[in-house]
Design a protein around this nucleic acid. Structure first.
Lengths: 222, 222
DNA sequence: CTTGAGTATAATGTATTCTAAATGCAGTGT
DNA sequence: ACACTGCATTTAGAATACATTATACTCAAG
């Protein structure tokens, strides 16, 4: 593998992204270019460019002359994003499912097992999000739909913090494990229609859980 | 109305975008920061930032230390993008159709008439693309799905140059007028299912036309 | 003639510096 | 007490200057 020469902009973008996704930077919080620059020992230029990138990813709002803030997703936006995810991920799966090899399915199952034990252990809510993404990603890996995949990854990253919040506050996605097993089985028998429908329901179910939680929080603010 | 203080970055982005969409900058062509900067009488910073924005829009490829090039869409990418459009626009329409007012439908019909006379006149292929977008946009205007809308607009902008090319080379989207009328009628009677299915077919039809054209061109290159 | 190291060059990436916009505050006048 | 004006401060936007990377080219060795 070729050595990677990462540009400062990319490094800064990754750092800020991580901070937003981990919740270290809270939604709505302003992101001062100068502060970030000194903190990371770079000039403001790479910071600006990183912020622009993050804006494209939907993690940051950028207003001319006013600065950037971490995006704050309302319940209705969550709603829309999860609808999109259901639509797009089902589309991806439908293009991928027939191409899935036995090895892919084994890999997916291994990820699932890992995910389950991580959840049982109760530790590292950090890991579960990543494993969840990896499981889904494995199922989509044969889709040969790069643009769709990019969209899906973007939205999934974007909703990650809310999923994590959900896990923390609601004590975990308790229904997810069985659902994942079912989904995997449907993929194994190549039942495209059922698998896609089930995937949609799976995503929309998560949406409803999270939305309820968000609405409660929004209420409590008053 | 408040006067708008457009930042140089925004102005540059608009200028470059227009050049790419109009074909003045051809696909695959490298975009030199310095050249663009002097051409527009700004420094390279706003040019860089504009290019980053355009990359997010999918109009430009940005490779570290190598520079930016106008994106070149292969037949397979066209394929995928139009599939996405079909999916997303049908979704939008399904959320919008019940909210469409009589006035909306009248407006849409006016745009259609304008579009048809523009095509009859044979002039300004420039106008037809815009009118086409406006017609579709009108139908989606009540969807209340801002994120989806943004995506649709992005992809529609991105494929605009190919649609335009299609119009030029194939002598126009000859089947489009009737199809648009049919679609409008289905919206008027609020037949969501049929309207969405028809819209998908409409978009996928355009895709096939354009793909054929592209494959022919790609062949001719050899 | 081909291949490879090394250098030259041209382009991008980044730091520094300067400019301009937005916001808050003080002071004045009503 | 209130509103308005103008200044000061802070922050972002943009220009200039410098550093780094990638690539094209040269030239020598095999």
């Amino acid at each position: 593998m070729a050595i990677e020469h990462k540009t400062r902009t990319q490094l800064v973008a990754e750092a800020i992204r991580a901070k937003i996704l981990s919740g270290e930077i809270k939604a709505g919080e302003p992101l001062r270019q100068a502060a970030l620059a000194t903190e990371m020992n770079v000039s403001r230029i790479p910071v600006r460019e990183a912020l622009l990138q993050l804006e494209a990813e939907g993690l940051v709002n950028f207003e001319a002359h006013k600065g950037a803030t971490a995006t704050e997703l309302s319940a209705s936006q969550i709603d829309e994003i999860f609808d999109l995810r259901a639509l797009l991920e089902a589309e991806l799966l439908s293009h991928s499912i027939d191409g899935l090899t036995d090895q892919d399915l084994i890999d997916a199952e291994l990820i699932l097992t890992e995910l389950e034990s991580a959840m049982d252990a109760g530790d590292t809510h950090l890991a579960t999000g990543g494993l969840n993404s990896r499981f889904h990603g494995k199922l989509y890996s044969r889709a040969q739909r790069p643009q769709t995949r990019e969209l899906v990854d973007m939205y999934s990253k974007n909703s990650e913090r809310y999923v994590r919040m959900h896990i923390l506050l609601a004590g975990g996605l308790t229904t997810a494990p069985e659902e994942h097993r079912t989904l995997l089985e449907l993929c194994r028998v190549k039942d495209t229609k059922k698998a896609c429908d089930f995937l949609k329901k799976h995503i929309l179910g998560a949406k409803n859980d999270i939305k309820k939680l968000l609405l409660k929080i929004e209420d409590e603010k008053r």
